[in-house]
Write a protein that binds this DNA or RNA. Structure first.
Length: 503
RNA sequence: GGCCCCAUGGACUAGUGGUUAGGUCACCACCCUUUCAAGGUGGUAGCACGGGUUCAAAUCCCGUUGGGGUCACCA
């Protein structure tokens, strides 16, 4: 019972099921996971659903899903099981009331019958006087240093009046603790409110439930956002009331909006899912978020880390103290790094379904079997790999590899067409049609040989050829693009295009 | 407002008394080049301010300023 945490490192991520996983939450989960794994310990997910009104249906599943997609797999949770369950607080109500009884008996907690209106009025008054709003202890019993007679409290209880249970914060003591990222921190108990422990609906508050659960689940390290720093003294006090050894704590710097306020919706996407839906890969997201507040240090200049590498290298020592702005530009750059390095086979299996979807929507003049072949897709990937921002752009941004262009970029046409372009182009199409070897090298040689005696530069034809076959004025090496497209497709597109674009 | 935390270029950061203050993203220029990317080279830009301590401060101390968090029967 005496809760001295064992040697084993156990960390937890304790979200409340109120919506999708926030990127700030993702980072907190990641750091908890990385720390546990780097120490050979356990990572636990506990659902903190003590606020019935804010509960969102299905949120806990969504939270767990997103974690798993990014590779953060809990050792224990309401889905994965474990020996310290239940892992959902609403299923642990009996536990909390038992411990509440104990504090009541120890005279470290008391019943409070103050109404919401009274509290609000009191708060306003204190604010007006420039004081910190705190409970005025109207219901603090005489025997605990207050003014309320025992008889009055008993009477209210017998009446069945609604009540909450508050902790009795000791007067004028200093509460100190050591934060693993911030160092020693000290609070004066006079600034700590008599926090509600049990709400009138019989549910515990976060503060009470999390302290009890962290102890019972043998959590060795609490790693959470900085927004919890100022409630730490309450938690410390509770551990003391129970005679429990508090876990080690680390308060992480916040993730910030571009204006440096706490990262929130309104200023862009904040749900991890939003980024995944946009096409960012879990690896890039994890990599990016890991570097927001942590770095390997020692003059290390690496930027790209896999989850496994992070597990190996992560330490709390290297977590910074200042908040960091969530800057999407760098995430985009990281995503590109991952796309450049990803094996073609992986990309193929990711994009093939997307292509098939597109092909189902629209007819293509090309050979469908060839388009969906690994060989063809592999060639497209190598051509587009360095030009694409997201995996799905191997399809969307590379549409001309699968469908004939329906329109031609007007600006590009205007820029690249001369009076005699169509005339020369027409002659060249005939030449191309008679070219047996449709390899990039040979197309290039053919084009150059064709153009030289006519005193034109290769670019005179290159650009129109690109526009007519792809519809746009940019893209991969023209010769390689034509080779991959294949002679039949190229000739068809050119003949058709020259009719439309010709002046 | 009280309490707490924080402070290196636009963003992420290295740096723990002696460095021409380093790297990445972004930006700019040049190179490469048929375009777009990618790549290469170079560049713009920073220790919030003021006092100390010290032979010597981005680094240590104090103050100021600035920013943030938190003050719920929300987490």
């Amino acid at each position: 019972m005496q809760g001295t945490p064992g040697q084993r490192v156990r960390t937890r991520f304790a979200p409340s099921p109120t919506g999708h996983l926030h990127v700030g939450g993702l980072r907190t989960a990641l750091y908890n996971y990385l720390y546990a794994k780097s120490m050979g310990g356990d990572f636990i997910v506990r659902i903190e659903d003590t606020d019935q009104s804010r509960k969102v249906e299905g949120a806990e599943q969504s939270l767990l899903n997103t974690l798993e997609v990014t590779g953060i797999v809990p050792d224990e949770s309401f889905i994965h099981g474990g020996n310290f369950g239940p892992y959902v607080q609403s299923e642990r109500l009996g536990i909390y009331s038992k411990y509440c009884e104990q504090l009541l008996e120890q005279k470290q907690a008391y019943y409070c019958f103050s109404s919401a209106e009274e509290l609000e009025e009191n708060r306003k008054l204190q604010m007006k006087q420039g004081m910190q709003p705190k409970y005025d202890r109207t219901w603090l019993p005489e025997e605990m240093g207050g003014n309320m007679p025992e008889s009055e409290i008993r009477r209210k209880r017998e009446e069945g009046a609604p009540f909450v249970v508050r902790m009795r914060v000791p007067d004028y003591i200093s509460i100190m603790f050591d934060d693993m990222v911030r160092g020693p921190i000290e609070f004066d108990s006079a600034t700590v409110d008599d926090q509600v422990l049990m709400k009138s609906d019989g549910f515990p508050t976060y503060h009470f439930a999390s302290v009890i659960d962290d102890h019972l689940m043998e959590i060795s390290h609490v790693i959470r956002g900085e927004e919890w720093l100022s409630s730490m003294p309450k938690h410390i006090l509770l551990y003391e009331f129970f005679g429990w050894e508090p876990p080690k704590v680390a308060h992480l710097p916040l993730l910030l909006n571009p204006d440096r306020s706490k990262l929130s919706k309104r200023q862009g996407d904040v749900a991890a899912e939003d980024f995944i839906n946009k096409g960012y890969s879990p690896e890039a997201i994890i990599n990016f978020v890991a570097l927001l507040g942590w770095n390997e240090g020692e003059g290390c200049e690496r930027e790209v880390y896999s989850l496994d590498e992070l597990k190996e290298k992560f330490t709390l020592r290297r977590v910074g103290k200042a908040g960091s702005v969530f800057n999407v530009e760098k995430l985009g750059w990281l995503e590109k790094q991952y796309i450049k390095a990803r094996p073609a086979s992986e990309i193929i299996s990711a994009i093939k379904p997307l292509l098939q979807e597109e092909l189902a929507k629209k007819e293509t003049g090309m050979d469908v079997d060839r388009l969906v072949s690994d060989d063809y897709l592999g060639q497209v990937i190598e051509l587009m790999r360095e030009r694409v921002n997201f995996e799905h752009e191997f399809i969307s941004f590379s549409r001309y590899f699968y469908f004939d262009p329906e329109e031609f970029d007007e600006k590009a046409v205007e820029k690249r067409w001369a009076d005699d372009t169509n005339e020369v182009l027409g002659e060249f199409i005939d030449v191309l049609e008679n070219t047996a070897d449709f390899s990039a090298d040979n197309i290039e040689a053919t084009l150059k040989a064709f153009v030289a005696p006519r005193e034109k530069k290769p670019a005179f034809l290159i650009h129109p050829l690109r526009i007519l076959t792809s519809g746009v004025g940019f893209g991969p090496s023209l010769y390689h693009m034509l080779e991959v497209l294949g002679k039949e497709t190229v000739i068809r597109r050119l003949r058709k295009g020259i009719e439309v674009v010709g002046k």
